[in-house]
Design a protein around this nucleic acid. Structure first.
Length: 623
RNA sequence: GCUGGUGUGGCGCAACUCGGUAGCGCAACCGACUUGUAAUCGGUAGGUUCCCGGUUCGAAUCCGGGCACCAGCUCCA
């Protein structure tokens, strides 16, 4: 219940209706969080993490424990027991945790002097490392002045902790340990690797089931599985890690995506350019890539006394195009666009299907503009980004505005101007955003646009950066109204990010059942018997004439079998034709989802479908 | 890159603990059936068990090295 002396304090209300009394767990000067499911779940998960540590310590009394916070959908805790955990270990730990929950041990808070804490944790080097740093400002770990807060349950387990926690372990209703793996101590790859156990905890068995269902659903939608299944692309081992080939059906989808993007860019005043995949070291010396990005680049090729590199970015080449002649303010903003394929030597462990490749294609654009044009250009650009993403059926946007870091190039006033322009663009577009203070790159403040997919996952999509590095490195200029030379601003942006990654996200968003306008095969026609083949062929020609991607399935399979193949192949429309249809000039229409409709005149179907494709209708991705 | 796991016909799996000539389903191919809305029936073919080496009379199985993939960590200019 809220503390009457502290009207701002609220009780944590758990989603099951029960409440956590903050008075029991947080002192009056303690933190005040807002009420809501998310906060309640954080408390629940944090408490479950303590129970996990308690269980591990009781099974391995010599284990060293490091720390364990709540995370999205669950929690983790890091340990050192001198070896990795096995699946059998996890089962044992889970059982032990269930016992602790059943015993309903109360959580209690206390504050002790830092020196006393050091004594309590004298055998725990990781805890000691934190304690020794305290007195600074690591409130995270529960430092209050010269004291530090601890949480105990039933005198059986104690941890350094800021809290708050549930009143007792019995309030943990549904949890599960999900996996374990290595994790560097304090996230530093030069430090020892600890063993991390991940788990999930929910307010009810149903919520846990729901979460596990979501995991399963994500697995079914995994583009790495759908890609080969739908014959879209694969990763030939002969090519090497992180290199993909697109099959005809995948390449067709990609073409539709790119064609649409090109048309939109053309309409928005972009000019298309093309640049090669290799360049001499000279270019990357000017751009600075060889200085600060060398290990991310493919190695050099020595040829006829020159050194060549595959390009890791298109930007430097676009700078050369700008600089190919004197530019006037009259031609700004100048918007250059390219689907540019780049090569980056990503560390092997980070590669992930189409979302993290070593060779991929950016929908890359550089906009050169005057200082006055910066703000309006950013605004219209952001609106453009949202418009294009919406066309693909992505409707939920969030953004992050990253501001000037400690180390930066350019002038502070320029940074402020650019950052303000970015902020205004976000406000004008009405996109909810968070600010990452100091999280910009050293050469640019930026906006990253994220979308949520059909099962609630967040993906970073577009990035808009105001670049302070290249204008001076490449000595870019334009002649202003005053006849003097000025330095332009550059907006660097990728809308899809990478075409391959965008492809993967769409595939997962729709679970492989792409909207008709994107589907590689839009209609399959199934003649019931041999005598209907001719009519099926006529219908197919009629569709093809209308620009619809259609085929006839005249294989010697049962009708049911062919319908099934069309369904599992995620083809939007299945047309069945037999005597009735041939006589009436109609088709029986079975959409991928929804009910079949018989006796639809061919012309009517063609018109409807043409319209659906033309309007680029996106179905509810559902699940 | 680091820690751990996995690798068996195109795909999904079995045999691996305890070494003894590699099996199933789907797909493919051939044939019969000519079908009214999610799997017709019969047959055929297909494997250097990821690669290299070792142990053994004998290795898919045990051991070592490499490669690839998966999860997480770190990274993502």
């Amino acid at each position: 219940m809220p503390d009457p002396n502290n009207p701002d304090a609220v009780a944590y209300k758990l989603p099951d209706g029960s409440q956590v009394d903050l008075n029991a767990s947080v002192p009056a000067e303690g933190r005040i969080l807002t009420q809501g499911d998310d906060e309640g779940r954080q408390v629940l998960r944090h408490s479950t993490a303590h129970v996990l540590a308690q269980a591990v310590l009781s099974l391995w009394p010599h284990a060293k424990y490091a720390g364990g916070p709540p995370i999205e959908d669950g929690f983790y805790y890091d340990f050192d027991i001198g070896r990795p955990f096995t699946p059998e270990d996890l089962a044992k730990i889970e059982k032990k945790m269930a016992e602790i929950v059943k015993e309903d041990q109360p959580f209690s808070r206390e504050e002790v002097a830092i020196s006393e804490a050091a004594e309590i944790f004298r055998d725990q080097p990781y805890k000691l490392e934190w304690i020794n740093e305290m007195g600074d400002e690591s409130e995270e770990q529960g430092v209050i002045g010269e004291k530090v807060s601890l949480y105990r349950n039933a005198d059986k387990f104690v941890d350094l902790c800021r809290g708050p926690h549930l009143p007792s372990t019995g309030r943990i209703r549904a949890f599960k340990l999900t996996k374990s793996s290595g994790a560097y101590w304090r996230g530093d790859e030069r430090r020892p690797m600890l063993q991390r156990i991940y788990g999930t905890a929910w307010e009810s068995k149903e919520a846990l089931q729901n979460y596990l269902w979501r995991l399963e659903e994500a697995e079914k939608r995994d583009h790495r599985r759908l890609g080969p299944e739908l014959d879209l692309f694969h990763f030939p081992p002969e090519l090497g890690q992180g290199l993909v080939v697109f099959h005809p059906r995948g390449a067709l989808i990609r073409k539709v995506i790119e064609d649409y993007s090109r048309a939109e860019h053309e309409a928005a005043g972009y000019q298309f350019v093309w640049t090669p995949h290799l360049a001499k070291s000279t270019l990357f010396e000017i751009s600075g890539h060889l200085d600060w990005y060398r290990e991310g680049m493919y190695p050099a090729m020595e040829l006829e006394g020159a050194t060549y590199y595959p390009k890791p970015m298109n930007c430097p080449m676009h700078m050369l195009i700008y600089n190919s002649r004197t530019r006037s303010y009259r031609e700004l903003p100048l918007r250059l666009f390219e689907f540019g394929t780049v090569y980056r030597f990503e560390r092997s462990g980070v590669l992930h299907g189409l979302t993290r490749l070593r060779g991929f294609t950016q929908d890359d654009s550089h906009i050169f503009c005057t200082p006055d044009q910066l703000a309006p250009e950013l605004s219209s650009l952001l609106a453009f980004v949202v418009k294009v993403l919406r066309a693909f059926g992505l409707t939920e946007f969030e953004a992050e505005l990253s501001t000037r870091p400690e180390k930066y190039v350019g002038e502070p006033e320029e940074w402020d101007q650019a950052t303000e322009a970015l902020r205004k663009a976000l406000e004008a577009a009405g996109i909810p955003f968070t600010v990452g203070e100091g999280e910009g790159t050293f050469y640019a403040p930026k906006i990253d646009v994220h979308i949520r997919d059909a099962i609630g996952r967040r993906w970073q999509m577009s990035t808009l950066q105001v670049d302070f590095q290249f204008p001076s490195r490449f000595d870019l200029e334009y002649v202003g109204e005053d006849g003097e030379r000025h330095r332009p601003f550059i907006i660097h942006r990728a809308l899809f990010g990478s075409v391959e990654r965008f492809f993967a996200i769409l595939l997962e968003h729709y679970g492989g059942a792409l909207p008709t306008w994107l589907a590689p095969e839009q209609v399959v026609i199934i003649p019931i018997g041999e005598r209907h083949h001719e009519y099926a062929g006529q219908v197919c020609d009629r569709l093809k004439d209308a620009g619809i991607r259609a085929t006839v399935d005249s294989s010697n399979q049962s009708l049911g079998n062919r319908v099934r193949r069309a369904q599992t192949g995620k083809i939007p429309y299945t047309l069945v034709v037999g005597d009735k249809e041939a006589d009436a000039g109609s088709v029986s229409v079975r959409p991928r989802r929804g009910v079949e409709q018989r006796g639809v005149p061919v012309d009517e179907f063609v018109d409807q479908l043409k319209d659906e494709i033309k309007r680029r209708e996106n179905p509810d991705p559902g699940s």
